[in-house]
């Protein structure tokens, strides 16, 4: 009898504590200036929304666009962001905020062979109270996981997003920019690499096509962009042009191809990511090409 009583007391403490700590953490992060918290707290009023995976994070530098060209943009890119989740963020933005004038999508998440949507949906569980769609994805990611996540509120905070939200309690994360310079070792490794074929993930392409259709119904202009690669690396891609053509024909959308736009190694932090210099030059190019003419 004592054992049963002991177990019950423990469970009560465990669950009450779990809810209490979750509540406190929720209150704390709701004050964060982290971009996704701002998104789901309804605090975004930007005209332009930019999104992509880590190449989007590093290539789109919104403070420079604002300072140089007066463009009011937000970058919702995230490292390893799968297309399906990126388009879900965009749909939530459209439905929960004012409609943006334009959306820029960096398309290299289409080239990722393994579809991380299911695996990474758990990370995005942090936002599931605010997004029915993300909540649905967590449900699809696994029965046990969903059960655990519903049972314990704290699991929602077991996410990189939570810790980033804490890190940006005072400062806006938009000012972050990659300031690394490419290392000679990476250049050497790239030089030794064999040529390779770029993979096109059909499932991701379908998600993108579906979103474009949705955005079209909402009368929102979407621009597809391919950010720069280190030239030495880009040369190794045998079929990049064919892949771009396939994406364009499937989506009926032109891809603004900047994959070879930056020719100096000083613009890169590694072979697939630009640094601050590269991001600024890319912004200038995009502006010169009229991509930001929104009216």
């Amino acid at each position: 009898m004592n054992i049963v009583k002991g177990i019950l007391i423990f469970l009560v403490i465990l669950f009450v504590g779990d809810r209490l700590i979750s509540f406190v953490l929720d209150q704390v992060v709701s004050r964060s200036k982290f971009r996704y918290v701002r998104l789901y707290e309804g605090k975004m009023k930007e005209d332009v929304v930019m999104i992509g995976n880590s190449r989007g994070v590093n290539s789109f530098y919104t403070p420079y666009l604002k300072k140089q060209y007066g463009i009011n943009a937000v970058n919702l890119s995230y490292n390893g962001l799968p297309t399906k989740i990126a388009t879900t963020f965009l749909e939530d933005y459209i439905e929960q905020q004012q409609k943006p004038k334009a959306i820029f999508i960096e398309v290299s998440s289409l080239f990722v062979k393994y579809d991380f949507t299911k695996k990474s949906a758990i990370q995005y569980n942090f936002f599931s109270p605010y997004s029915e769609k993300l909540n649905g994805m967590v449900r699809e990611s696994g029965q046990w996981t969903y059960l655990l996540y519903n049972l314990f509120g704290l699991t929602r905070f077991n996410s990189e997003f939570f810790f980033r939200a804490l890190a940006y309690m005072k400062n806006d994360d938009a000012t972050w920019i990659n300031r690394y310079r490419i290392k000679p070792a990476i250049l050497k490794m790239t030089e030794k690499m064999d040529d390779f074929d770029v993979y096109l993930n059909e499932a991701s392409l379908q998600h993108l096509a579906d979103f474009l259709e949705y955005a079209d119904q909402q009368n929102i202009e979407v621009r597809l962009v391919l950010a720069p690669y280190l030239p030495m690396y880009q040369e190794k891609m045998r079929n990049l042009d064919e892949v771009i053509a396939t994406v364009e024909s499937k989506t009926n959308k032109k891809i603004y191809n900047y994959s070879h736009a930056l020719d100096k190694i000083e613009y890169f932090s590694d072979r697939v990511h630009t640094n601050d210099n590269g991001a600024n030059v890319l912004s200038d190019r995009m502006y010169e090409d009229g991509l930001f003419s929104l009216d």
Partner: peptide
């Protein structure tokens, strides 16, 4: 109770 629950909370969170 508190120490066991704290370990579970830490596991859930981290």
């Amino acid at each position: 109770y508190i120490s066991f629950a704290s370990i579970v909370w830490l596991i859930l969170l981290f």
